[in-house]
Design a protein around this nucleic acid. Structure first.
Length: 291
DNA sequence: AAACAGGAACCAC
DNA sequence: GTGGTTCCTGTT
């Protein structure tokens, strides 16, 4: 990979395995919006960024940033030091994954902020992606700080103190219903230090998962998402309705329990289960697999 | 306009 | 430990 500076941004050249659409639409994040020109604008770690990838040319243009910030934040955020070619080659030994990878070949697993993901996936319970995005936008507008880019206001994700210090009934204005209580409780746990997400991140997958599930509202699926998308636990395999359907469709003859699906993934994909999950999720949604 | 979409808690058994 | 019901908001 090469980096070239431009006015208010950088251009990455000779980039492998990077497609903004695949990255931002494989279910791992909620704060990136597609623009007219096919680029995506979003906010992470307090910064607004615009991303335009050209897979044929092997370039990625990052706007509203600079070289320093790229090396400090975005290089790790986009997981640019990982060889996705090797991961795909390994997974493609399985014929189903080989096809799924053709659909989402430019997927990368983002390194997101654990606190933001804890709240985002509490927000996601029993809800579909557009609604989750809307609720997170509202919550950030209410409790985050404004950042402006190209005449538009974006809002940073609120810290635990901001949410812990407010009244539960106020949080309910973001229309997240019963999830507001979970979010408020989580904020109090993290703000008070009773839960330390960095310490959980340092644990092995299984104990980290148990620790996360002590938080009210965090079940197996939400925990797996936090582990995979913000704690680099790539052996996690979050099972939502899409993953349940696609796994049953290709690997089982009919309906099986969540427990059996997770066990299957562990045995079949091992340490790469999380990557497999992302390719399969994207594939399932492209195919619109139902029931 | 009734049906449906989407995970976890909670309570039986 | 499994199965059924409820929670809440929005879309089709």
């Amino acid at each position: 990979m090469k980096l070239r500076k431009i006015q208010n941004g950088v251009i990455l050249e000779e980039v492998q395995d990077f497609d903004a659409k695949h990255i931002f639409e494989c279910g791992q994040c909620f704060r990136w919006e597609r623009q007219q020109d096919g680029s995506y604008t979003g906010i992470a770690f307090g910064r607004v960024l615009n991303v335009l990838s050209d897979t044929a040319a092997g370039t990625v243009a990052l706007k509203n940033t600079n070289e320093d910030e790229f090396f400090k934040i975005w290089q790790h955020y986009f997981d640019l030091n990982r060889d996705y070619g090797a991961i795909k080659a390994e997974l493609a030994q399985d014929p189903v994954l080989a096809t799924a990878i053709q659909y989402g070949e430019g997927i990368r697993i983002l390194n997101q902020d654990p606190w933001e993901l804890l709240v985002s996936f509490l927000m996601s319970i029993n809800k579909s992606i557009p609604l989750i995005s809307q609720n997170i936008r509202d919550l950030s507008r209410m409790y985050g700080s404004p950042v402006y880019f190209e005449g538009r206001q974006y809002d940073t994700f609120p810290g635990p103190e901001a949410l812990a210090g407010t009244d539960l009934n106020e949080i309910k204005a973001c229309r997240a219903g019963f999830r507001c209580r979970y979010i408020h409780e989580a904020a109090k746990l993290v703000a008070s230090g009773q839960i330390c997400l960095e310490r959980i991140k340092a644990m092995p997958t299984e104990s980290a998962k148990e620790a996360l599930m002590t938080v009210i509202g965090v079940g197996p699926k939400v925990a797996d998402c936090i582990l995979l998308f913000s704690m680099q636990k790539y052996d996690s395999y979050p099972v939502d309705v899409w993953i349940k359907r696609v796994t049953e469709y290709f690997y089982f003859d009919g309906s099986v329990s969540h427990r059996d699906i997770r066990q299957f993934a562990r045995e079949k994909f091992g340490d790469l289960a999380g990557f497999a999950q992302q390719y399969l999720f994207y594939y399932a949604r492209e195919l619109k697999i139902n029931k």
